[in-house]
Design a protein around this nucleic acid. Structure first.
Lengths: 233, 233
DNA sequence: ACTTTATATGACCGAGCGGTAATATACGGC
DNA sequence: GCCGTATATTACCGCTCGGTCATATAAAGT
């Protein structure tokens, strides 16, 4: 097997080494996140995490300084995905409702993966002062994105008059809760959930004068789709 | 001062004694719930709870057998209020939408008080096997109440066609999240929140028959997603 | 006055777990 | 072949915190 490794990257042992390290670090995070979610942060011991990775506890300290740092990294990874989604939506343009729908879909999908769930199911307050402040600030930015799109939608007429703050709480709340009940391989797929939520949460907010007008742009016209038979299920 | 106590209940020392005990027990629960929510279940020590009540830790064991039992009682009290609300709604009658609105308001209000917050912010899994099963069964009943009212509303025409299960997740989710952000004395009062949520969450579900025909989105559009992943990642 | 019962306390135990120290092993660079 | 570095292990420390024991005090019943 040493022959194989040499074959894979004989000219970049340095980079290879660093990449291997990053991969291991990531593997730790994946396993930790899974375990944190599975049994709770406190009940998930570093021994558990290490054992499931076929190593021992002290080995973890080659990659992280503390259990809390692992938690922070898990949150950071989830948060990064949320940030990316928001940045992409901002870049694409469109009216408020369109942006809001995209954000709902993206956020719903995030809530179906481990790192996303970490954001809503693990307790911030386990973090150090600084890490806590950082994570909370980022979460606040997510909330602000919802409010921003809603406010924009009200301004451009794609969303009915309402209090953006409350509306954002309603939407973000129902999305966050996905992280508490979603199970992989259960009745609904992540995509189905994202679609359903985007529909349910915006049909109450969308201005109903769309009929022939501008209507919602890009999103694969749900209004047009006539109930297709949901195969399986 | 001893004269005063004698004055309060000299003829019912027996009952008085028992009531005093219940009051103390309740005081412990209130303080514990507050502390659990404030700093988290694990960081809240029984010493903290006791000290804030001007007693010491072992004294708590006159009223509870364990920390976990205190947690369970907190959940039970919150759950009781939810059950009462549902029972009252069931008794009053009305169409599905009316019942749903009542439940939304009641549940929103529950999420603004400590015992209600305990239901959504404290981790079930700290409980013993039996207590866990009991609490989860009760929570499931709450969820079923949402589905039941939604299904009834669809049947009687007061709510648009949609998947009751998903709709219940949306509504219950956004309500549960109130317990995570509501702060006493902040911008919105509990009543205002309850009203706003009832409006926002039902205007998207209420049949818009007053307008021309049935407008609001037929929800599903379950676009059959390719590849539902049956196995874990 | 004496007993019983409820309630409270100080002192202590012991399990669990995050984190550390000393040490062994594999590997790339020279 | 030799050294430096990264990575891993075994053994162990120490603190926190839930829970218990023996005991004290006060009130109720007789």
């Amino acid at each position: 097997m040493s022959a194989k490794r040499a074959q894979v990257s004989p000219w970049a042992p340095f980079e290879d080494r660093r990449r291997a390290r990053d991969e291991k670090k990531y593997a730790v995070l994946r396993m930790a996140a899974q375990l944190f979610l599975d049994v709770g942060y406190h009940r998930a011991t570093l021994n558990d995490v290490a054992t499931r990775l076929n190593i021992t506890k002290p080995a973890l300290y080659n990659y992280f300084r503390s259990k809390e740092e692992i938690l922070e990294e898990c949150c950071r990874l989830g948060q990064q995905m949320a940030d990316d989604a928001i940045a992409e939506i901002d870049q694409a343009g469109g009216d408020g409702l369109t942006k809001l729908r995209k954000l709902i879909r993206g956020y719903a999908l995030l809530m179906t993966i481990d790192f996303g769930m970490c954001l809503v199911r693990l307790d911030d307050r386990e973090l150090s002062e600084e890490a806590y402040a950082r994570v909370r600030a980022e979460k606040r930015q997510d909330d602000m994105a919802f409010r921003k799109y809603i406010a924009a939608g009200i301004a451009d007429g794609s969303i009915v008059e309402c209090d953006p703050k409350i509306a954002a709480f309603v939407i973000a709340g129902s999305l966050n809760w996905i992280g508490h009940w979603y199970r992989d391989g259960a009745q609904y797929s992540a995509q189905e959930i994202a679609d359903h939520f985007a529909n349910l949460l915006t049909t109450g907010l969308a201005a109903k004068r769309s009929r022939a007008g501008k209507s919602a742009g890009k999103i694969p016209a749900k209004r047009a789709t006539r109930r297709r038979r949901p195969e399986g299920n």
